[in-house]
Each structure stands twice: as structure tokens, then as C-alpha cells.
Design a protein around this nucleic acid. Structure first.
Lengths: 209, 209
DNA sequence: CAGCGGGTTGACTGACCAGTCAATCCGGGG
DNA sequence: CCCCGGATTGACTGGTCAGTCAACCCGCTG
């Protein structure tokens, strides 16, 4: 077997990718700071030096992981915003995407949230602008909803975006640190609860809803 | 003057306190990880070794700062809960306390939030339980409000607590990293907005509200 | 089959820093 | 005036890693 193709096993043992994937595991397991570059190399079954062949530094590995994923998030939000849906459903779709991202690859989301998004210090600082883009996109959705009257204007759009994203992040954090029960049921419940809290509010005031 | 008292200048150059205060500045400025113990000692104008006379480790310094403050927070929440107020006003009081804490000592709050609360990894891990106590206290308030009918039961109390606290933390984070305008006006506005978002919701559904 | 060069290896170096410790200082008894 | 013990000092040690680099492997080309 395998005479024409150079290899027929995995299309190509893309070492760069292997390193990236290994880094996700390593960072998720030990945390970025506690994780040594050699942990990444070991996990990837690759020599120490190779990490530096593909990346300028340990930081760049994390940068890459974050940007790869965050850019997808930004695209998805923009796309959702483009659809013709009630604002409430747009928010639900965004919450869904983020929560499903966690469901598919908890380690990756853990790294992004714990080491970048929630670490605006050390690391996230570099990415503050990128992170803010997401807030801005969400604020846009709220702003338009306020303009067409489907959302009240009691709160500024950017503030609403903060609260919305904040709720999502808290929930993910709860799962990440086992402070909150997780499972298929909880994932869907969380999506609904987040939207219900932010959009519906806690007050019973207008009972009917 | 001052012949009876041992000293009459500052009541007592409580070195331990000086170290703690210096640590707040040092941690806030450089971040816990990037901050060296010698930075703390320098800032406190005290010899390096003295830090280890009063604390077992650099970690213990941060622990102390966090616990000192968080315990106050827990007491305050409990006290607020004890008062006879509408749930909405209790939440407003809690948001006020936290935001005023930031107004009063931004560096300390920065350290607590950035290095402990939002760093459930590395550090916060030790304090997860303590942090959760705050959530639980808030959830209690929501639960009672649901029981007496002033809050809807569309969402679980613990979930509402998460969203509420999450909103506060996002706002503080915004101020800490200059992502959000801050000032006296903004502080009060934020208190109102947080409560308005969580309690009132974004939906225009029942216009009156 | 020699030579080239990118991919790969892992030992090694330079920096950095938390924590230790022996020495010094100083106030208060005795 | 001397001694004791806690407070204070800061030089030094041990260990840890990120990042470097010289050498090696191997497929391909001429």
C-alpha cells in the first residue's frame, strides 16, 4: 500500500497543528503560566525546539489559539446580525454559538476564557481591542432593537452588551471550574436562561411578560 | 510633647500594614505574576526579608488582601439581605457597595478582581468556595423575592445571581482596563443600569414597566 | 551519488526570582 | 550597663524555564 502518495496515513502530520492542539491540552491542564514549553512539546510528541520553529515564543502559541477562535466568533456574530431575526433570537443564537463552542471543545474555550478573555492583565491586554469588537457587535444588535422599538432604551446598548456577555462568561466560568452543573441539558437551559434574564428581566412587574 | 507615649508620630509604623498596602500598589501596577517580592518591599520602604517575617509567601500576601476585603463584602451582603427592602433595592445596594469599593480604592479592587476573582485558575482556585458564598447570598435574595412574587421564576436564583454578579464584574473590568468611561457620574449610572438590566430586562414587551 | 536546505532534535545558557539565613539593630527588663 | 529576644536587613542559594543553536536527518534535485 501507499506507493503513489508520499504517505497515505493522515494527509500530513502537520506538526504545527499538532503543537497547537497539544498546547490547548497543556494550557487547559496546567494553566498558561504553570505550563512549560516542554509540556507542549511532550504532549505533541515533538522535540522541544520544534515549537520555536513554528512559533516565535510561548506567547505566540496562545495568541494564535485565541485569534483563530475569536475571529470565528466575530464572523459568526456578524453573520447572525445580518439575518432577519428578532433581537432576542439573535442574542440567543450568539449565546448558543459560544456555549456550543464550549461543548465541542471545552479545553480550547477554557484556555481562551481563562487565559485571555478573563486575563485582561498579563495577556488579554494585547487582545483588548479584539475582545471589544465582540462587545461592539452585540451592542449594535441592541441598538438596532432599541431603534425599532423591540427593546427598551432604559440602558445604553454598550452596557447591555456588557451584561449579556458577562452573563455568558460567568456561566462558562462556572462550568470550567465545576462550580456549576454541566451536561447537555444544562447547556440548553443556560442558553435560554441567559437570554431570559437579560431580555425578560427578573421583575414580575408585567406578569404576563 | 509626647513623653508618655513611646512615639507620637504615626500611631505605630505598622510594618505589616505597610507591606499589605504596598502590595496593593505593586500588584495593581505590575500584576501579581510580574511583580517581584522586592517590588513590594521597595514600595513599602522595607527590607526584602521583612516581607517573609510577616508572611509565609508572596501568595499569602495576596490571600490576605483578598480575604480581608471579601469577608467585608460577605458581611455587607448579609446585612443588606437582613434589611426589609424590596429585592430590587437589595440588589442595588449590593451593586453600590461593590462599585463604591472600587471608587474608594481602585487598586485594591483591581487586584482582587484581576488576580483572584477572575483568575479562578492559578489563584482564585483556592478561594472558589469563598467566592461562591457571595453568589449564594445573592441567590438567596432572589429566591425569597421569587417566593413572595416580586420576581418572576423564569430563571433559577443561582443563575440570576451569576448574571447579576457577572454584570458587575464586567463593568469593573471595563473600568480597570479603561475600556469603559469612568467617573462619579458613570459610577452611579452603572449601579442603576446593572439593576435595570437584570431586573427590568431589555424587552419592550410590557412597555409600561 | 553528492549537495542542498528545510524540518527536527535536545543539550545548554542566561536570566530571573522566591525564599533562606546569619548578622545587626534596638527597646526593655534586670 | 548588660543581656535577651523580637524586628529588621540584604546578600546569597537553589531551582526553574524560556529561548538558542549546532548538529542531524532525509527527501529531492542536478
Amino acid at each position: 500500500m501507499a506507493s503513489t502518495a508520499p504517505h497515505d496515513s493522515p494527509p500530513a502530520p502537520d506538526k504545527r497543528r499538532m503543537i497547537l492542539d497539544a498546547a490547548v491540552v497543556a494550557f487547559a491542564t496546567r494553566g498558561f503560566h504553570a505550563c512549560r514549553v516542554s509540556d507542549i512539546a511532550d504532549e505533541a510528541q515533538v522535540a522541544y525546539g520544534l515549537v520555536y520553529h513554528y512559533f516565535r515564543s510561548k506567547d505566540e502559541v496562545l495568541d494564535t489559539l485565541f485569534l483563530e477562535r475569536w475571529d470565528v466568533l466575530l464572523e459568526v456574530i456578524a453573520e447572525i446580525d445580518g439575518q432577519d431575526l428578532p433581537a432576542r433570537e439573535k442574542l440567543h443564537a450568539i449565546a448558543s454559538f459560544i456555549i456550543d463552542s464550549y461543548r465541542h471543545d471545552p479545553d480550547l474555550m477554557k484556555v481562551i476564557i481563562v487565559e485571555v478573555t478573563r486575563a485582561a492583565n498579563s495577556f488579554g491586554r494585547t487582545h483588548l481591542a479584539k475582545i471589544r469588537e465582540a462587545y461592539a457587535l452585540i451592542a449594535d444588535i441592541v441598538e438596532k432593537a432599541q431603534a425599532d422599538g423591540s427593546f427598551r432604551s432604559a440602558v445604553t446598548p454598550s452596557f447591555a452588551a456588557l451584561a449579556f456577555y458577562g452573563a455568558i462568561e460567568q456561566v462558562l466560568t462556572g462550568w470550567i471550574f465545576d462550580t456549576l452543573a454541566q451536561g447537555e441539558a444544562e447547556f440548553d437551559e443556560a442558553k435560554a436562561f441567559i437570554v431570559e434574564t437579560i431580555c425578560g428581566g427578573l421583575d414580575a412587574a408585567a406578569a404576563g411578560r
